[in-house]
Write a protein that binds this DNA or RNA. Structure first.
Length: 659
RNA sequence: GGGGGCGUAGCUCAGUCGGAUAGAGCAUCAGCCUUCUAAGCUGAGGGUCACAGGUUCGAUUCCUGUCGCCCCUACCA
């Protein structure tokens, strides 16, 4: 609703600008700093003042006069030097919320692909991976909430170095044949993904002490790429088992995928060789004859580095910064495969995978995986997007630039522009948390704001361990508060609170801020946290439930409530502010999509919860004696609850039955 | 060396296109449970928006420089 009025006003002003000043300008609206200024502010006169060389106040007055009647708007005022402040007609506004004109569906024709999670399938997921998956999943929920068609892809790098290293560990270090590893996968006593976590750290250390053993890695990579032999078999075994573990971990947080494109199929279905031919044909890459990259196919740095293109005076052979796409031994780097994958996402490769159903989630949703052989059962159609978001760690922005440069070099400028590196900073550990975990720190590290995690060193917090710990903490609290409740139900509530705390924690920071993970902070359920928001929703639900438990029935609000009554009640500033805040849910999501910041939705959820908690404290709904007023308060409670739940749903957070 | 990011309250962070008196949470202190659950609410203290210039009617925001911290700059991803 708020969204509608914003759009209506913006376009009305834009029309004015066009007719009065012959200007084409995108008008944006602000929220006034103080609520006494009204509900919306239009600062457009300031922008115009310079262009028109006239005082902003005068322009504002002219625009406001010309605007006339806008539905739902009570008045326009010129304030300060030239703000146009907008006051809504509270009665009309509230009434339209009671009638709930559904928000407009947006673009459902073009597909958006969001790729996220993308964890190397060689060990358990850690907190850094959680940030990726939660960000990606929330962004997907945001887009879907606002009517976009979205496909979720989780790329599986099952032929890369990291998988190879674990295979090396099993084969060369532990001398385990595939059958034995299979037994470990199926074993009940230890978790396979945890076991691989340790093994990966072990083999990484081993390489350091015995550099000659790196040839094992090379051997293994070749075997995997060829797809034959015991090493390849081990790689498949490990990768599939770990992917299963990752999907289970993510499902605990309500994260699901549509399709798992695998690197093995990129290779075996010759996606790469097709892309390779294209790149050579268009001369996007060339064969290096000299220097350190001799014998490799490389992309010149001028393709992805603006500064170098600007300065051609450099001597000819200065391509030390070129990016190797095909190594001198003939194998292709990750970036090369990623270019082929990116082309497929846009439907530009002229090829497709084959698919089989990987599994079906408990809610019935299916996730598919790519295969190299045609399957009998028909599959949905994947790929062919108009826009692609790649949720990838910001440390890889250089590689992402190379991928986009690849598209551009092939002449796909439109798709290059539609490729978004949805980047985010890493999750590190606070020094305090390192100490708690028994990680030895140097004096220097202790003074740092954070300590980087390292899979190679096995240093980090495993996702499932963190989730378990959160559940444990929440459960203790739930048991304390509800000793009489059913144990299974309490467990369920604790899980929902834990997930709420974790997802909110991962979302409350904007993407480009490094999170120094701290157990104490993450385990907090007070203040700006997921549980705080959940608690507000639960309280709202309690009011409605209690009301009905006491024998009354909730009125049919749309029949009982009318503009006049609503206007009278919402003259109370506090109540109006709650309603206003609640009506901004869609606007908040839309804004967050535009800025690419899921954190904005989290912040909004918190503000709405805060606003409601305030209301809860100040007004007794059920005890309200004036029946008309009570009806309004009940409706407000229900409306806020609905908006809160809708927003929590966008954040991937459930409402517990009680707290 | 080159590229990118950051620097806002004791701590962790927000801060819309340059606009009205710079905001939250935590921590500290002082209050509030016979009520729809206190995982809550109210209040207080706490700021040279790193520093110095510049552009502007107006700068936390844009530009330049300085200082400090971080990331990238692999035939790993």
């Amino acid at each position: 609703m708020f969204q509608d009025i914003e759009e209506k006003l913006a376009s009305a002003i834009e029309e004015q600008l066009a007719s009065k000043f012959d200007l084409k300008l995108k008008v944006s609206l602000e929220q006034p700093k103080q609520s006494s200024f009204g509900e919306l502010a239009i600062p457009v006169a300031f922008q115009l003042a310079r262009q028109l060389k006239r005082p902003p106040r005068q322009i504002a007055e002219e625009l406001a006069k010309g605007l006339g009647e806008v539905q739902g708007v009570a008045s326009l005022e010129i304030a300060g030097n030239g703000y146009i402040n907008v006051r809504l007609d509270r009665g009309v506004y509230a009434e339209s919320l009671v009638r709930q004109a559904a928000g407009p569906g947006r673009d459902v024709t073009t597909k958006i692909v969001v790729e996220h999670t993308n964890i190397n399938p060689n060990k358990a997921a850690h907190i850094g991976h959680l940030r990726n998956a939660v960000l990606g999943d929330t962004f997907v929920r945001m887009l879907r909430k606002r009517g976009r068609l979205v496909e979720v892809q989780n790329y599986i790098d099952n032929t890369g170095v990291q998988v190879a290293d674990v295979v090396v560990g099993f084969h060369y270090l532990e001398k385990k044949p595939p059958a034995e590893v299979q037994a470990l996968v199926e074993g009940q006593n230890t978790r396979f993904d945890y076991l691989c976590w340790d093994l990966y750290a072990r083999i990484s250390g081993y390489y350091k002490e015995h550099p000659e053993s790196l040839k094992w890695r090379a051997n293994t990579l070749h075997a995997i790429e060829a797809g034959e032999g015991e090493l390849a078999e081990l790689a498949h075994l490990v990768a599939d088992a770990i992917v299963g573990a990752h999907l289970n971990t993510m499902f605990r947080l309500g994260i699901e995928y549509d399709v798992l494109p695998r690197e093995s199929e990129i290779l075996h279905l010759n996606f790469w060789s097709t892309a390779f031919e294209l790149l050579k044909e268009r001369q996007a890459i060339y064969f290096e004859e000299q220097g350190k990259n001799r014998g490799c196919w490389v992309m010149p740095s001028s393709a992805f580095r603006e500064s170098e293109a600007a300065d051609p005076s450099d001597e000819e052979g200065s391509d030390e910064d070129s990016k190797v796409i095909v190594r001198s031994n003939g194998t292709v780097t990750y970036v090369g495969k990623d270019i082929a994958y990116q082309l497929w996402k846009f439907g530009l490769l002229g090829k497709d995978f084959h698919y089989r159903r990987w599994s079906t989630y408990r809610d019935g949703h299916e996730v598919w995986v790519t295969t190299s052989q045609p399957m009998d059962e028909p599959s949905p159609h994947f790929g062919g997007a108009a826009k692609v978001f790649n949720v990838i760690d910001s440390r890889q922005s250089y590689l992402q630039d190379v991928v986009v440069a690849g598209l551009r070099a092939l002449g796909f400028n439109e798709q290059a522009d539609a490729s978004v590196h949805f980047s985010y900073e890493m999750v590190a550990l606070s020094p305090r948390t390192c100490v708690e975990m028994g990680i030895a720190l140097s004096e220097e590290d202790k003074r740092r704001p954070y300590v980087e995690v390292s899979g190679r060193k096995g240093l980090g917090v495993k996702a499932d361990d963190l989730i378990d710990k959160l559940i444990e903490t929440a459960l203790a609290e739930v048991e304390d508060r509800h000793p009489e409740a059913d144990a299974r139900e309490r467990r369920r509530v604790a899980e929902q609170i834990a997930v709420g705390a974790l997802r909110y924690f991962m979302l409350k920071f904007t993407r480009n801020s490094v999170i120094a993970f701290d157990f104490h902070e993450a385990l907090s359920f007070e203040g700006e946290t997921g549980p705080y928001v959940q608690y507000a929703a639960v309280r709202a639900g309690n009011i409605l439930r209690k009301y009905e438990e006491r024998g009354a029935k909730l009125p049919r609000f749309e029949e009982v409530l009318h503009a006049e009554l609503l206007k009278r009640c919402f003259e109370t500033e506090g109540l109006w502010q709650v309603l206003l805040m609640a009506s901004k849910a869609d606007s908040a999501v839309e804004r967050a999509i535009a800025s690419g910041e899921p954190a904005h939705v989290a912040k909004y959820a918190f503000q709405l919860a805060q606003s409601f908690n305030n209301f809860y404290h100040e007004h007794s709904v059920i005890a309200e004696e004036d029946p008309a007023r009570r009806t309004v308060l009940l409706w407000l409670t229900q409306y806020v609850r609905d908006q809160l739940l809708a927003t929590l749903n966008v954040l991937g957070i459930d409402q517990p039955q009680y707290m």
